[in-house]
Amino acid sequence: MSAPPTVTVVIPLLNEQPSLEELHRRIVESIELAMSQELVSGYRILFVDDGSTDGSWETIRRLTRSHPMTEGIRLRRNFGKAAALATGFAAADGDVVITMDADLQDDPKEIPRFMSQLAEGFDVVSGWKQVRNDPWHKTLPSAVFNRLVSRLTGVMLNDHNCGFKAYRREIFDEVKLYGELHRFVPVLAAARGWRVGEIVVEHHARQFGRSKYGLSRIVKGFLDLLTIYFLTGFAQRPLHLIGSAGLLGLLLGGSGLTWLTFRWVWTRSFADLEPLHLHETAIFYYCITALLLGAQCLSAGLIAELITSVTQPDRPPASVAEVIRSETRS
């Protein structure tokens, strides 16, 4: 029987000083409970300070002095949550990486349940804040966003926005974060063949400070969704997306011009018909525009394919789960 996995808890934060000591205490209690249940064999707690100005780093210093399994990373300025998480993932050495927010809205007591779900064969386990203690102007856009993400990506999670997640460490050898894509790690992992699950987690109202997200997050979220749709579906075959639009433009423009040509000839074949003058017909210019746009999209798709072929990322073309060979093979 294999030993239980080790865990690294990565906590990105920005100006969350009042909650850090209580959060740390709860995490330690929860992981020690998981260790007593033989779900975890060892752990690290890693705080990533994303440019805090409220004394958060001083609190992290105290915690690292008093607790040997606690570490901190301080970024030189506010780089954003995705950058903070990517920094934490690069430093994590556990078999499992758990991410959670530092504002005490995520409850560390859920950690054993995350570990149990991973033990059942899942590679990513996402939290679902089924009962969410946030105002309606945050919950309503989030509900719409979650439905769109599930519909477009096929990864049927109820709460893509939840920051409380557990991952097998190997996932981050294949999934790279940039921009605001941290909330889409389960989608990116699923696109590589990793198994994604979900559990309901308890969600608490914010006790200290204020939310770091405003209305601008909604706009950014939908733009990021378009990015994810492209990356998961067409990153290795951009011509299939851009070229399809180009072929559609060529088809519409070509069909329109063919019809106009037929009408131009027809109206001049009979004396009693009023001749068709193409330069006086608006659809003639629409067809020309469609042809030009179609040709441009097709050309752009071919250039994108060329760029993709010569700038392949440093990752395998497919995600290998297991390799077996005959024991008699020399």
Results as ranks from 00 to 15, higher is better:
210 R>P: 00
296 Q>V: 14
208 F>Y: 15
290 A>R: 04
227 T>Y: 05
222 F>D: 02
313 P>I: 05
302 L>K: 13
208 F>I: 07
204 H>P: 02
210 R>V: 12
202 E>M: 00
322 E>P: 00
234 F>S: 09
310 V>R: 14
196 V>G: 05
254 G>F: 06
321 A>P: 01
286 Y>T: 11
190 A>R: 09
287 C>D: 06
185 V>C: 14
209 G>K: 10
273 L>W: 14
264 W>I: 03
312 Q>P: 03
298 L>A: 08
186 P>V: 04
268 R>Y: 05
248 L>D: 02
250 L>C: 11
201 V>L: 09
294 G>N: 05
290 A>S: 15
271 A>P: 05
286 Y>C: 10
211 S>I: 13
282 A>W: 06
189 A>F: 06
244 S>P: 01
291 L>F: 01
318 A>D: 04
311 T>M: 06
266 W>L: 14
202 E>H: 02
319 S>V: 02
212 K>Q: 14
304 A>G: 05
262 F>K: 06
226 L>F: 07
263 R>D: 05
254 G>C: 10
315 R>W: 00
193 G>K: 12
204 H>L: 15
253 G>L: 03
262 F>D: 06
288 I>P: 00
222 F>Y: 15
278 L>N: 05
256 G>N: 10
292 L>N: 04
244 S>Q: 09
182 H>C: 04
312 Q>V: 08
212 K>S: 15
206 R>H: 08
216 S>D: 15
231 L>R: 14
210 R>S: 15
191 A>L: 06
247 L>F: 07
309 S>L: 10
204 H>K: 15
252 L>S: 12
209 G>D: 07
188 L>W: 04
203 H>W: 06
317 P>T: 09
245 A>C: 05
213 Y>F: 11
188 L>D: 06
276 L>G: 05
256 G>H: 04
318 A>N: 02
227 T>V: 04
210 R>I: 13
277 H>R: 12
273 L>S: 07
291 L>E: 04
303 I>G: 02
246 G>H: 01
231 L>N: 01
218 I>M: 07
214 G>C: 10
252 L>E: 07
286 Y>N: 10
247 L>I: 04
261 T>D: 07
221 G>A: 07
191 A>H: 06
300 A>D: 12
305 E>V: 00
248 L>N: 03
255 S>W: 12
289 T>H: 08
247 L>N: 02
209 G>A: 04
277 H>G: 02
